[in-house]
Nucleic acid binder design. Sequence first.
DNA 1: ACCTGAACACCGTTCAAGT
DNA 2: ACCTGAACACCGTTCAAGT
Lengths: 218, 218
Amino acid sequence: MTVTSARAPRRRDALSRQRIVEAAIELLDADGESGLTVRALTSRLSTGRGAIYHHVAGVDDLLAAAADDVIRAATERTADGTDPTTAIRDLSLAIFDALDAHPWVGTQLAREPLQPAVLRIWKSIAVQLQGLGIDGSARSDAGAALASYIFGSAAQFAAGARRSSDEAKRQNYLDALASAWTERDDDQVVRDAASHLRDHDDRKQFMAGIDIFLKGIT
Amino acid sequence: MTVTSARAPRRRDALSRQRIVEAAIELLDADGESGLTVRALTSRLSTGRGAIYHHVAGVDDLLAAAADDVIRAATERTADGTDPTTAIRDLSLAIFDALDAHPWVGTQLAREPLQPAVLRIWKSIAVQLQGLGIDGSARSDAGAALASYIFGSAAQFAAGARRSSDEAKRQNYLDALASAWTERDDDQVVRDAASHLRDHDDRKQFMAGIDIFLKGIT
DNA sequence: ACCTGAACACCGTTCAAGT
DNA sequence: ACCTGAACACCGTTCAAGT
């Protein structure tokens, strides 16, 4: 009685770093940060657990690469030839929209300053600041400030965007948040903030911050 | 032959939420985010695994409570009676120093906008903006912008601060980061940014951003 | 060289049993 | 009511064995 091997047949199409990164983005978009597990990934790619370690260093590396993919697409969409102020606003909006579509990127950007996606954003900003004639340490201060503002906003909006699959859910979330705030601290200043929280527009508020910043550097 | 129970004797001094939060802060300060595990915590508190769940909802709740403890201490140190602009600068510095001493807080702040520590910072800022005569949606835009800037900076500096236990280590880290950047992208604008990165001062750069912001809202 | 999948060394959380 | 610690259902990563 011959016994066939229990081992699964070998996959035919080769794995690659890019294929793995794309699968990771699909998992992250579908289920958030917790959706990216080596087990889910290898099952989706029909491969063994250890296989991905031939192409990526580990889960941290994979998350950074996935975020960089998203940010690359966003920064490349910015038009050349416009004036630097408009370019900074366009760039900011492109990043905002990318984060809105992929909320997990917001959390990831705040995690590690060394990562490629962060360098990409820094560089895009620095180029425009150069266009505004800002140089030396003034440029690096302004660039760092704008980048930090974007990263901070990204992280804050990410939590909201995760729940904004539909408008009702988003409103529920904001109402609950506003109520939790006033419940915890019923100061007038908190009530004001909570009431603005209930009906604010993330995108508009984000751009208001960009404009405060632009006014501050000119 | 009588057999004594293998069970450990019951602890005498009662657990409390505050005792657990304090132990968590000690673990986080000593070993960073990865140092806070239920096992490490219950071993330090000489108690059983499940005991902490009588006082905290879980690890996420505990992290948020620990961050709030640190931020409370920082915001309470801000003096009354000074003019709002000085108060915002003092508040920012107090938060910066708290994050520098407890780098894990920077990462935690970026994780969840609903948490107490975030509300605390929002409120401290809003009070001062009110003092500057900024009201309505202008206040909530300015407050959100400043808070986002602080959260973004916090996360960026956290990664550096974790390595800055001594000056040589910090310089090594910055040099490696600057080299990695220019290696990846040898554009002039990146070389400039990398050279400023090598010898920048986190605290000064953070305050430069606060000042850009203050200029932008007045 | 690349892939497979079992094994390893961890996690957070739950819960029956004790005091 | 509070605590204990085993059990459960997961993780990421490594590595001998296969192709």
